[in-house]
């Protein structure tokens, strides 16, 4: 499960994540409608680690049967995935920014497999990615293929019953080739989840469902790389969940843990302010 053609150091991956966030903000400042910027920013490091380090995929051969499959179960982070994929060479970033959300564009609020064949599935309604991933993992097992099926869910999304139905199925069918990353940003759209909906004890829940549980800081690129490198072999018998502790709005101080920035748009002034905040955050972290 490695980007072997073009391996990156952790520092290079951190730079790519910064570039991804900058491009996200730029799109958010260009597009007039709302973008799910909060959950994009919390997923940015995970998606960078996956598309630039973890996933064995080839942008020039999107139907190769041996590729790892990646499903964005939290489909509202589509922009973050489109840009991460563009940086890996799947799409052109300009194509995304220039057409996003417009009539007949392939790039919209939630990914559509029909309009954008480079993505693995049409998602958007929450709680759908994990069952789809279970089907793809079963298919790989049935054909004796050794690729992995990887999905990224939001933690709020795991309130959906279908997630736990699929979690049970993955355990019953011993799908060690299935990996779920969870963006544990602890926010729903309208509340902080431990205030209204108690997900804790969260990692225990997954362990009780028979999953191999890894718990990391989802903004620590070194930890993400390590978690990916340490994944059990795809022919092992337990699915793995990587619970990534994250911050919604990560990298832009006025958006961080701020319910107002679940989704939003940036005017020109806001864009400058957000870019400055992103730069400041980077300098602070590199000290």
């Amino acid at each position: 499960m490695q980007n072997t053609e073009n391996p990156h150091t952790v520092e290079e991956l951190e730079n790519l994540a910064f570039e991804l966030r900058s491009k996200l903000l730029h799109l958010c400042g260009t597009y007039e409608g709302a973008v799910h910027i909060g959950g994009d920013l919390s997923s940015a490091d995970i998606l960078t680690a996956l598309f630039h380090h973890g996933l064995h995929v080839d942008p020039t051969d999107i139907a190769n049967p041996t590729r790892d499959r990646f499903l964005l179960s939290k489909g509202h982070a589509a922009v973050c995935m489109y840009i991460a994929m563009s940086m890996r060479g799947f799409f052109s970033y300009d194509g995304i920014v220039d057409t996003y959300g417009q009539l007949d564009s392939a790039y919209g609020m939630h990914p559509c497999k029909v309009q954008l064949p480079g993505v693995e599935a049409s998602t958007g309604s929450l709680g759908h990615g994990l069952p789809l991933a279970v089907g793809m993992a079963l298919s790989a097992r049935g054909r004796g293929e050794s690729h992995r099926v990887v999905t990224l869910m939001g933690d709020g999304e795991t309130g959906e019953g279908s997630v736990w139905e699929a979690a049970m199925a993955a355990n019953s069918y011993e799908l060690g080739n299935l990996v779920a990353f969870i963006d544990r940003n602890r926010q729903l759209m309208t509340s902080f989840d431990e205030e209204r909906v108690f997900l804790e004890p969260y990692t225990d829940k997954w362990a009780a469902f028979g999953w191999n549980v890894v718990h990391i800081d989802g903004h620590d690129m070194g930890a993400l790389v390590q978690a990916i490198d340490a994944l059990p072999a795809s022919d092992s018998r337990k699915p793995t969940v990587v619970v990534c502790e994250t911050v919604k709005g990560k990298g832009v101080d006025f958006m961080e843990r701020n319910l107002a920035w679940h989704a939003g748009s940036l005017g020109a002034a806001d864009l400058d302010r957000a870019m400055a905040a992103l730069q400041a955050s980077r300098e602070k972290e590199s000290v």
Binding site: K113, P131, V134, G135, M136, M168
Partner: peptide, 11 residues
Amino acid sequence: ACVGVAAGLAY
């Protein structure tokens, strides 16, 4: 999950 898994297989 049953229908979702079926869709995953069909993909």
